[in-house]
């Protein structure tokens, strides 16, 4: 059990002139959960598909359960579970039928009927795949990834297209997998998901790792630094607020009408902010104090503007 579940270093993969992955590296330990977090087009899926053995890297080293996924794929595949992005099943196959087929490929599968039930698919077990909703297709795909009792599971955007209840269920499942010693590599662009599930978060953008660590490490700042944020009408003169606050506090308006006070936020600072707002005749809404969120880190690293 000493070899890591996944070890990637200096991974490079291009499609023609487009470089999808430009030197990604990370390590996933046995029984841990790693989230690859990044905007669309960051190279998450390519990285995962290289680990699954579907794509051959241009250069770099990839070891999955101590095996080379391309040359030793036949030995690797029985040990992993894969949930590809966008599902995967015969268009006309019934949900339960597909899961039974995948179960037949495993030596010690879970009970397909139980898994169908747990994932809330009992009502559509006889429905052809192409008539399932997007969320149902995703849940079937997840079932196919888990049915063979793998040591390592790849989940590519597992909650895409799911309603909140299904998303909670997936989160609970990932927790149960981790508790049972299954390593999980998941991709997501949902900060909340990465923060809730992952032991280790790797933020990728433009094919590179821009930050990594535990959620706590990534969101940590200076020892006493905290944030106070509130919403009010846009365009307040933040220089005036800075003047009213103790030395060392900074005030920004990252998006219109959303204000952020950074520094040593003590009760006096909170009181000063509300008093200043009262003076300005504005109501400070959704005022809260806390550490920065993973979303703050993510947006600081990858930029706020919408990508094409």
């Amino acid at each position: 059990m000493s070899t890591p579940a996944v070890e990637v270093s200096d991974l490079v993969k291009s499609y023609g002139p487009t470089t999808a992955v430009a030197g990604v590296g990370f390590r996933l330990d046995r029984g841990a959960v790693l989230a690859l977090l990044g905007p669309n087009g960051a190279g998450k899926t390519t990285t995962v598909e290289v680990c699954e053995g579907f794509r051959r890297p241009d250069s770099g080293r990839v070891q999955v359960l101590g095996l080379d996924p391309v040359t030793e794929g036949a030995a690797l595949r029985p040990r992993i579970g894969v949930m590809p992005q966008g599902g995967g099943a015969y268009p006309g196959v019934r949900a339960a039928e597909m899961l039974r087929l995948v179960a037949a490929c495993a030596a010690n599968p879970l009970d397909p009927a139980w898994l169908i039930d747990v994932l809330g698919l009992a009502g559509c077990a006889r429905t052809p795949y192409k008539r399932l909703s997007g969320g149902q297709q995703q849940r079937l795909s997840l079932a196919c990834a888990l049915i063979g009792r793998p040591e390592l599971v790849f989940l590519d955007e597992p909650t895409a297209g799911m309603d909140p209840q299904a998303r909670r269920l997936v989160w609970e499942l990932v927790g149960a997998l981790r508790a049972d010693g299954v390593a999980v590599l998941l991709t997501t662009h949902l900060m909340e998901e990465a923060e809730a599930l992952a032991d280790h978060v790797v933020i990728v953008d433009g094919g590179r790792v821009v930050a990594e660590g535990t959620p706590a490490e990534l969101t940590a700042e200076g020892p006493d630094e905290q944030r106070l944020r509130f919403r009010a009408k846009s365009g307040l003169d933040t220089a005036l607020l800075v003047a009213a606050l103790p030395e060392g506090c900074r005030v920004t308006e990252p998006t219109a009408g959303e204000y952020l006070v950074t520094g040593v936020v003590d009760p006096q600072v909170v009181s000063t902010v509300t008093a200043w707002c009262a003076q300005q005749g504005v109501l400070a809404e959704e005022l809260r104090v806390g550490r920065r969120s993973l979303e703050d880190v993510f947006l600081e690293l990858t930029g706020r503007e919408l990508r094409s």
Partner: peptide, 9 residues
């Protein structure tokens, strides 16, 4: 429940 027991059929 999910304790690994991998292998090919």
């Amino acid at each position: 429940t999910f304790a690994p027991a991998p292998g090919a059929g």
